[in-house]
Amino acid sequence: MAFSRYVALGDSFTEGVGDPDPTRPNGLRGWADLVAEQLARHSDDFGYANLAIRGRKLDPILAEQLEPAMAMRPDLVTIYAGGNDLLRPKVNIDALMERYDAALGKLVASGAHLVIWTAHDPKASRMYQPLRGRFAIYNELARELAEKHDATLIDFWRLRDYHGWALWADDRLHMNSFGHQRMAIEVLDRLGVEHDLAKPVVTEKPAAPRNEAIRTNLFWIRTEAAPWVHRRVTGRSSGDTVSPRRPHLAPVE
């Protein structure tokens, strides 16, 4: 496939959190930038926009990003939405996916080819493992939507490279730079786009001694988990003061 107008929608996953680059907008790179750079090699007039903002749930993503995206008349749209909803105490997954379905239908009707995701398998995380059933329900519905809209599906759940921690950032929620590169490769391969990205070679770290593991977990609770819970309790989001990294279609530099 060849594309010339690519728009990326979503939350922190698509914004690029976990893959820092101080030279880029919001200080991030991420898998979507890597995909855009490779797509640009196959088009003489390529434009890329990234409207994703960290912390966004599905409804704000659709309310804030859908119409601006369609106004750019993209021929490729990537969207991963709903992950933050699954982490909330209560969520109606069926209703959530009905709204997602309607939005995807609008994007397809505008002429865009879609790339969508399932959620990853959280079995390696003690914190997120209790939500595994939610993730599985979301995933089956996402697979149905991919079939309905003839979308390219990235089945994150089945990507076993992500089942350990080697491709995850220290916050245990976002992919690290290796993880973003691995995801970019998956997207390009599923689209059938030639690229020169090398699959990162990483190894799982051996289990730390008990005392060290306890210190690491306490540090994570203090610096990552507690602030996340505080934002939930106070109704705030990590993206409240964040703007889209690339709000307009522009060439890839």
Rank of each mutant, 00 (worst) to 15 (best):
N84R: 04
D240W: 11
I214A: 12
H113A: 13
L188S: 00
A95R: 14
K205F: 09
W31Q: 03
R210T: 12
L96A: 07
G18T: 01
I185L: 03
A71V: 11
A52F: 00
E15Y: 05
K199G: 11
R56H: 13
T78G: 12
A32Y: 06
E67L: 10
D45I: 08
D44V: 10
F156T: 01
S237V: 05
H163W: 15
W157S: 00
D45P: 07
G55V: 01
W168S: 09
A52Q: 02
H174L: 08
Q65P: 02
F219P: 10
E253I: 14
H149F: 08
L114Y: 08
N84M: 03
A184Y: 03
A142Y: 02
L34D: 05
L173W: 03
K199H: 13
F135V: 00
L51S: 04
D240P: 06
L34S: 02
V187A: 01
L197D: 08
R126D: 13
L191A: 04
T118W: 00
W168C: 05
A198L: 12
E224I: 12
R160V: 09
N139S: 04
Y48P: 00
S12G: 03
F46L: 07
T216D: 14
A112T: 10
A36V: 03
Y138Q: 09
L96K: 08
L107M: 14
N139G: 03
P244S: 08
R232V: 09
W31K: 03
D75W: 07
V202I: 11
A36G: 06
E67R: 13
L58V: 00
R245V: 04
H149I: 08
T223I: 10
D161W: 11
M175H: 11
S237W: 06
P251C: 08
L114M: 04
I53L: 07
I185A: 02
P227Q: 07
E186F: 06
L76S: 05
P20V: 10
R143Y: 03
L86K: 02
R56G: 09
V201A: 14
L173P: 00
G55C: 01
R158H: 12
M175L: 15
